[in-house]
Design a protein around this nucleic acid. Structure first.
Length: 409
RNA sequence: GGAGGGGUGGCUGAGUGGUCGAAAGCGACGGUCUUGAAAACCGUUAGACCUUCACGGGUCUCGUGAGUUCGAAUCUCACCCCCUCCGCCA
């Protein structure tokens, strides 16, 4: 079941998993296998005898059935035993190059890119948009409660400019645009690894319809190819997905309570790749490179952070975050994330590739933010603000806004 | 929301308790014939897992799960999905 290397890999995820590892120790997995073999042996006896029954004379038939009955009962008992061995849900194993560490304090900043703007008294994005009510939180709260807001006017238009800009950069790299369902069934959400390890508290659940609202398009794109077998030539399969994303933000009380930085609903463009196993590390670097290309096009100052083992999400084997500079906070804040889930999700989803040799193998699944639109708008507003309170529009976006050059002028 | 029909191998489709993992046809693959091709003819043709050096053997799978039975594609229950008609609706 689980080998030594995997066990060590899990250990690297840190203290949060210590309890889980103890539990694993008891369950060698061997018992499970032995039970199943025992069951198969009994089943073989029944099957063999059952075939002979129709041809038997009546009294021999009776005798045989009487002999088989206890075996059949034994099978039922074994089946029950197997069913009771609840499978322990394990997270993905970190890749070897992922740094050790318990939490985000052990994350590694790989590089800082771009020039931070020199601003005397930087305003935050709320102050910058208040005069024209481009971010309407009051009405958001009135209609939907806390952590909801309206994007209006130029800011709403900028959402679509960002989308167009991203498409112009990404779609010529072999990605297919897709608008996925934002509600998915429980088995798909579970297969993607988001109903374990605490993730279950952060997704919206529509109980009446047994559906989950996606927290990211990733959860809808992965299951797209569930139970499918790719040919080698079809890979890599790359999608650029646009979707609204929904997060309960349970447990984030007190964090970023103001504004639209952390909200229950936001729109996001997400890249997603299905690749050959040996190609996934390259693909992961590609996704990161595209993210950086997008940010450099916008000329936003950012840094690239590699998450340590203890800070990885449940299905992830390696994650890079891009954090963008927010002048009002004097800090870098997460705007992008890219992960390889190796074969963790593809196993649960039963997605394979047929090799030219005929062998089938699980593909690797990767995801990466193109733009989390709300947070990107925040970063643009703050980094492009002028001393007079107006905001210049990044040149790469202007063509998508009929040449509009500034907000608030 | 109401009424009805249906889910079987790559496809079509037969199969209502017992050598059925499954007829037949199509398709695909291999062969014979042919200068080559077509046609015709012959043959092969589901998957996952366990086991074996290998030949092979075994278990599971007929939408999914549970049940009845010595034995389930076939009977019972629940669920999922698809189609048709009506209603509602962007």
């Amino acid at each position: 079941m689980i080998d030594q290397a995997q066990l060590e890999g899990l250990h690297r995820r840190g203290r949060k998993f210590r309890g889980l590892l103890l539990k694993l120790k008891d369950q060698t997995g061997r018992t499970n296998k032995v039970l199943r073999q025992e069951l198969e042996l009994l089943q073989a006896q029944i099957n063999a005898a059952s075939k002979l029954i129709p041809a038997m004379p009546a009294d021999e038939k009776k005798k045989t059935i009487a002999r088989l009955k206890p075996i059949s009962d034994q099978i039922a008992t074994l089946k029950a035993q197997l069913a009771n061995q609840d499978e322990i849900k394990l997270p993905n194993i970190p890749q070897p190059d992922v740094p050790d560490g318990e939490d985000e304090s052990a994350n590694i900043v790989e590089r800082e890119v771009g020039k931070k703007p020199k601003l005397k008294n930087p305003k935050d994005y709320l102050a910058l948009t208040e005069p024209s009510a481009l971010v309407d939180l009051k009405r958001g709260a009135k209609v939907s409660g806390s952590r909801f807001g309206y994007l209006t006017g130029v800011l709403a238009q900028m959402q679509f400019a960002l989308i167009q800009y991203a498409q112009s950069v990404i779609l010529n790299k072999g990605f297919t645009m897709v608008v996925p369902p934002v509600m998915v069934t429980e088995d798909n959400m579970a297969a993607m690894g988001y109903l374990a390890g605490g993730g279950e508290n952060d997704v919206y659940h529509l109980e009446k319809d047994k559906l989950y609202l996606v927290g990211t398009a990733e959860q809808s794109i992965g299951p797209m190819h569930r139970d499918e077998v790719f040919t080698e030539a079809e890979l890599p399969k790359r999608y650029l997905a646009f979707s609204s994303c929904f997060r309960r933000e349970a447990g984030s009380y007190g964090q970023d309570t103001k504004g639209i930085f952390r909200v229950h609903q936001f729109d996001k463009l997400e890249m997603f790749s299905f690749t050959l196993p040996e190609a996934s590390d390259h693909e992961h670097e590609l996704l990161l490179r595209i993210q950086e290309e997008l940010m450099q096009g916008l000329k936003l100052p950012y840094r690239v952070v590699k998450l340590c083992a203890g800070d990885l999400g449940w299905p992830s084997a390696r994650t890079w975050d891009i954090e963008t500079w927010l002048p009002s906070q004097g800090a870098y804040r997460e705007t992008h994330s890219t992960s390889t889930t190796t074969d963790y999700q593809s196993r649960a989803l039963n997605i394979k590739v047929k090799r030219s040799s005929g062998e089938k193998e699980h593909v690797h699944l990767l995801n990466g933010t193109a733009f989390a639109i709300g947070r990107t708008l925040i970063a643009i507003l703050e980094n492009y603000q002028q001393s007079d309170g107006t905001v210049t529009i990044p040149p790469v976006l202007q063509p998508f806004l009929n040449g509009l050059a500034a907000i608030g002028r």
